[in-house]
Amino acid sequence: MKFGVLRFPGSCDEVDAQLAAGRVGEAVLLWHRDRDLQGCDAIIVPGGFSYGDYLRAGAIARFSPMMEEVIAFARDGGLVLGICNGFQVLCEAGLLPGALLQNTNRRFTSRQVRLEVVNSETPFTLACAPGELLSVPAKHGSGRYYAPDDQIDAMEAAGQVVVRYAPGDCFNGSARDIAGVCNQAGNVFGLMPHPEHAVDPLTGSTDGLRIFESMAMAAEGVRG
């Protein structure tokens, strides 16, 4: 299992993502100006402030050469995980539905949140039990998930709402407490909280590992 973690100017969580993925497989960094996915089985678009968040978070990064390759990889069914800024990039790229808007509290907020696993049958949550709560950090200023109501209805019916903030933990004003969604095919997943920062007991929780373990299981054809 080989993960590729994108690195843009302004990324800041790519090394943590590489270390987290490295606990379940091999993980390499992929520079945004390159076009070679290096035979990776899964791609992670990491957190940070790609291109300084100019214009809108994720708006410029989606046009980088490497993202063009990632879009083609995703269209072919490849596993793509977007975390925080990576989620924003995937929404801007049209790989995921919806948009991330400024938090209703108007603050950059950094805190531990509990994530409820709504759909445990995606390639990103196979290792989780339905309804399981994962304790992971969240840290962002623009993480308010938005999509039109009728679209969210359809996404909920199709199992595309993968994780929600547990009651009381949705600090950013996201529609229906949504923390992470997948595409219709289920091979692209984005979430605002950071599973890659919760993989070592030293930092309080190892729940984030479940996401990476799930991806490894899915890539190796093991169904939970």
Binding site: L101, Q102, N103, T104, N105, R106, R144, Y146, G173
Partner: peptide
Amino acid sequence: GILDPQGVAV
């Protein structure tokens, strides 16, 4: 119809 937190702050 979309909440604009900056507008609310002003």
